[in-house]
Amino acid sequence: MTPRDHARRGSQVSFRFAEGYAAMQALIAQGVIGDFRAPDIMRFGVTPLYLDEDDIDRAAGVIGRVIDSGAWDRPEFRARAAVT
């Protein structure tokens, strides 16, 4: 989802995932904080002021595990709240 052209993007990375809301809740439960935008966009801010390369590597690993394992597919992560 994030444009590859440096001039067209800011300091965030966005992914499309059909079950993005539930996945974002599962990620938040594991300490990876992002933002969900309907219908299927998961956004993550990246700033060198408070994130370093190890933080990014850890977050990428958690995102991969949550998505690949289906850890997001639990009732408590599917329950919609007013905000993510």
Rank of each mutant, 00 (worst) to 15 (best):
A22C: 10
L51V: 04
E19R: 12
A29R: 14
R16I: 04
A82E: 14
R80V: 13
G10L: 11
T84V: 13
M42A: 09
G70Y: 03
A79S: 09
R16W: 04
V32N: 03
I63G: 00
D55N: 15
E53T: 11
A38V: 00
R74Y: 01
A23S: 10
F77I: 06
G61L: 07
R65Q: 13
A79M: 07
I28H: 15
E19K: 13
D5L: 08
R8N: 12
E53H: 05
L27T: 10
W72E: 07
Y50W: 12
M24F: 02
T47H: 11
A60N: 08
Q25R: 15
G61H: 06
Q30Y: 02
V32G: 03
A81S: 13
F36G: 04
T47E: 10
D73L: 02
T2L: 08
S69A: 04
V62M: 01
F77K: 07
M24Q: 14
D52P: 01
D73N: 15
V32Q: 04
R8S: 10
I67F: 06
E53M: 11
D55P: 06
A23T: 11
A18P: 03
V66I: 12
H6C: 07
D55A: 14
D35A: 04
G10V: 09
T84M: 10
R65W: 05
I63D: 00
E76H: 11
P75K: 11
Y21T: 09
R78A: 13
A71Q: 12
A81Y: 02
G20I: 09
E53I: 08
M42F: 02
A38R: 13
S11V: 05
F36Y: 14
Y21D: 07
P39Q: 03
G64I: 06
A79I: 09
R80K: 15
F44S: 00
A26F: 13
A60Q: 12
G34C: 06
G34K: 10
D5M: 10
I56G: 01
G70A: 02
M1Y: 11
F77Q: 10
G64V: 06
E53V: 11
G31R: 07
R4G: 06
D52K: 04
I67W: 00
A59V: 06
M24L: 15
I41Q: 11
E19N: 15
I28F: 11
G34P: 07
A81F: 07
L51F: 08
P75G: 05
V13W: 03
E19S: 12
F44L: 09
V83N: 09
P3G: 07
A23N: 05
V32D: 01
S69Q: 02
G70K: 01
A26I: 13
T2P: 04
F77A: 09
W72I: 05
A79E: 14
V32T: 11
L51I: 03
R37A: 10
S11E: 10
G64D: 14
P39W: 01
I33A: 14
T47I: 04
Y50K: 06
R58Q: 11
T47C: 04
Y50Q: 08
Q30F: 06
F44C: 01
I63Y: 00
T47L: 04
A7Y: 12
R9Q: 05
I67L: 15
D57E: 14
R74V: 06
D35H: 12
R58I: 05
